[in-house]
Design a protein around this nucleic acid. Sequence first.
DNA 1: AAATCACGCAACCGCAGTGAT
DNA 2: TATCACTGCGGTTGCGTGATT
Length: 207
Amino acid sequence: MEGAGNGEQRKGLWTVEEDIILMDYVKVHGKGKWNRAAKFTGLKRDGKSCRLRWMNYLSPSVKRGVFSEEEDDLIIRLHKLLGNRWSLIAGRIPGRTDNQVKNHWNIHLSKQLGFKGKYKVSDSSSKFSKKPDASLNIKLSSNDRLIPSNKTEAELQNVLEGSHEKAKEITSTQEPILTSGFYDPYLYAPSLMELLDESLDFLWHDF
DNA sequence: AAATCACGCAACCGCAGTGAT
DNA sequence: TATCACTGCGGTTGCGTGATT
């Protein structure tokens, strides 16, 4: 990573001043239109960089700190089900971003589960070179998603959405508990994990 | 104390999908 | 319908820092 950019675009780590400018912009104009945000604020960053900074760091919904065992477990289960669909996995783990989940997987969980080093694409020409074991009856969608062959992508989404709704029901019937200013869903871990197991059973039935 | 190594994380890159014109 | 701008995603890179030699 280079420091201050040569000319127009700045790259590398964000400064506190840049963070404040971006936060102020979002406070007033809301999220989205990141290219416009970059121009409007005068930040020498492109829209993608602004978006990434907000999504992964500045957003108040981002939970920081170490991953709990429950989160690890959830990631492992969801990864088994979904493959490297980090955004989908992160979407089921409140407060965690796809980047966090991806990093955590590559650094900790892949080793823990005996993957050889962190996952690397062996052939740069192939974005998704890590194909599933052919002996497993897995099909790949147009996006190379891992989907049990007897389930459609829509079914998969429905089940996950259903789980999400159920999870909301479960959590809404219990007293919300804040940990360090963040709502900690894993205080409800038993119910949520049972729910996930149900979903996994459904998806992998006859698989 | 200095050099080296390994790890963790933030950020970049390229590509694909989607919506607006 | 075609084109373009924007957004989102996954893979990868490289910096910062603590541990080890």
